[in-house]
Simulated scan of single mutants.
Amino acid sequence: MNAIVPLQQAENTEFCGGKASSLARWQKLGFQVPDGFVATTTALRTMISSHAGLAALADLVRQGEAPDSAYAEMRHMLLELPLPAQMEDDLLLNFSKHRFPFGAAVRSSGICEDGVENSHAGLHDSVLGVQEAQLVAGVRRVWASGLSERSVSYRQEKRVSMDPASHAVLVHGMVDAKISGVTFTRDPTSPESNQMMVEMCWGLGESLVSGSVTPERLLVDRESLQVCERQPGSQDAQIGLNGHRPVKNPARAKLPEGTLTELFHMCIQIDQIAETPCDIEWSVAEDGIWLLQARPITKFGAKQSASHPS
């Protein structure tokens, strides 16, 4: 596969990873997904093979014979060694084609990510608000984060591929979010209850995922789509495209009933198409509801929230 492909053509998980291939499918099904492109696993393999020292360390990692210092050395090389000239030009060309009005999010998309067994949630770096001049550094940072201590330990524990070139990089548009949230289409703390759990915050979802705010939480009946329980959140500041700003009235309900109903319908539709309970990330902007990620919930039983994903 090509080193860089449009998101619409990124359905091959082996080359584009779980996150990108999932979003490509949802986009084709008509869901509103921020458009973008993917630096496939081919791009990372090309980068590694372009430098003899990096390739030698990658071979040790694949064979399970690498000392701990090898991972740190590879991270440093991925951050500092030059990219093949054509690859850098192609990355910048694809970025300029999309004219991301609010900048781009640069995120990992691993082969073993976002599946039923393994989510890899929060293990790799994401870089937000990226402009063209920052793109190459953002891609490098995501590549290097795949060799962090946390990422390596997780893959060793789960006994998944240690291939350092096993993840792609998704570059897609930022959303000027007024509200962001996460929906578990079956409440993971009480899967027998036939309820969804919805958590939301003001602004971008980074506040929610990082655990820096107490989100508003709704429990919603999966059949009637009626709110069974509402727990107000606590949030003094929100993250927007231009940084932090105060929340004027943090106690008020975040979404009107009509938008809530539309959100609930979208989440149930995704659940039904996927034929499994899903963990869905979304944002609401002036132009509607945007789907940012949808992956199977990897386990039930333990208390979960968006700020402590499985």
Score class of each variant (00 low, 15 high):
M1Y: 04
A3T: 11
I4T: 02
P6H: 08
L7C: 05
Q8K: 12
N12V: 14
E14M: 12
A20M: 05
S21A: 13
S21Y: 09
S22Q: 08
L23I: 07
K28G: 13
L29M: 14
P34E: 11
G36C: 09
G36E: 04
F37T: 09
T40Q: 05
T41K: 02
T42E: 15
L44Q: 06
T46A: 12
M47V: 14
S49D: 15
S50M: 06
S50P: 08
R62L: 09
Q63E: 14
D68I: 09
A70K: 00
Y71P: 07
E73K: 13
L78Y: 03
L78W: 04
L81F: 05
Q86S: 13
M87R: 07
E88M: 01
D89G: 03
D90N: 14
D90F: 05
H98Q: 14
R99C: 13
A105P: 04
A105V: 11
R107C: 02
V116K: 12
V116P: 08
A121S: 14
H124P: 01
S126A: 15
Q131E: 13
A133Q: 13
A133K: 11
Q134D: 15
A137C: 02
G138K: 01
W143Y: 10
A144P: 03
S145I: 07
S148V: 10
V152Q: 13
S153P: 03
S153F: 11
K158V: 10
P164C: 06
A165N: 07
H172C: 15
G181D: 10
F184G: 04
F184W: 06
F184C: 08
T185G: 05
R186Y: 04
S193F: 10
S193Y: 09
N194L: 11
E199Y: 10
G205V: 08
G205T: 08
V209Q: 08
G211I: 03
G211V: 05
V213R: 03
R222M: 11
L225W: 01
A237M: 11
Q238G: 10
L241A: 02
L241P: 01
R245I: 07
P246G: 05
P250S: 11
P256Y: 07
P256S: 12
E257M: 10
T261Q: 14
C267M: 11
C267H: 13
I268Q: 12
D271N: 11
Q272M: 03
D279K: 00
S283C: 08
E286A: 14
G288D: 04
L291N: 02
L291C: 08
Q293P: 08
R295W: 00
R295S: 00
I297S: 09
A302K: 10
Q304I: 13
Q304S: 12
H308K: 15
